[in-house]
């Protein structure tokens, strides 16, 4: 463990807590993409299949349980409890255009042609594009609530911090995982446009409103 990865995990944790607080406090899921949350649930389920078979540390297990638990709870809030506030018209990204290519790529490009490894690779590739339905929804509605912007900023920062973690681990431990790094770079690049808006607007107390 290193400071970059710890900050990355804390940023990820913060993003999930911000999202849950937004939903619980406002009792609304307006502006939140249920499709992105479904993709995140798929990512965590596919990545943490080894939850019960390989024990890394208490921290690792607790975080995995928390991530899986909260993402399914978020889906429950969106599609059941606060269903009335879910904006399905604007959450119209065709996720099959993500899942099929990512699934195919995981078969073709992986570290080892073994079931668990391919499923892990699929989760890595899928995570890098899982935010697209959410960003697409914001571009369609033309704006994002400030709390949703904080959620996205924390979520985007987590993988950016993981990139720093991989640089550190390369020099400190000689650890290098090309698949995770390339997917992490793609994932972080997808947030750049949003990061720019967040820093130039939200930090000055304005709301993010894209030209619709």
């Amino acid at each position: 463990m290193n400071i970059f990865r710890l900050c990355g995990d804390m940023s990820h944790l913060a993003a999930i807590i911000i999202l849950l607080l937004k939903m619980w406090k406002t009792r609304s899921v307006a502006g939140i993409s249920g499709k992105s949350q479904i993709l995140f649930a798929t990512v965590f389920t596919a990545r943490y299949l080894d939850l019960f078979t390989s024990f890394i540390s208490i921290y690792n297990t607790c975080m995995k349980v928390f991530f899986i638990g909260t993402v399914y709870f978020t889906i429950y809030l969106i599609y059941m409890k606060f269903k009335a506030t879910y904006d399905s018209n604007h959450d119209s990204f065709r996720v099959e255009f993500l899942i099929v290519p990512v699934g195919g790529l995981a078969f073709l490009v992986n570290h080892e042609f073994a079931p668990l490894e391919i499923i892990w690779t699929f989760s890595i590739y899928l995570e890098s594009v899982a935010i697209l339905p959410q960003l697409f929804m914001i571009s369609k509605t033309g704006e994002a609530e400030t709390i949703t912007s904080h959620y996205l900023f924390a979520l985007g920062s987590y993988r950016a911090l993981y990139l720093c973690n991989w640089i550190y681990r390369y020099y400190a431990e000689g650890f290098f995982d090309l698949i995770a790094v390339v997917a992490g770079v793609v994932q972080t690049i997808l947030y750049c446009d949003f990061f720019y808006l967040y820093i130039t607007k939200v930090m000055k107390g304005k709301k993010i409103s894209l030209p619709a």
Binding site: R5, D50, I56, M63, K64, E112, F175, F176
Partner: peptide, 10 residues
């Protein structure tokens, strides 16, 4: 190549 090490990252 073989797995370099267990997946210790989240």
């Amino acid at each position: 190549e073989e797995n370099q090490k267990p997946k210790d990252e989240l």
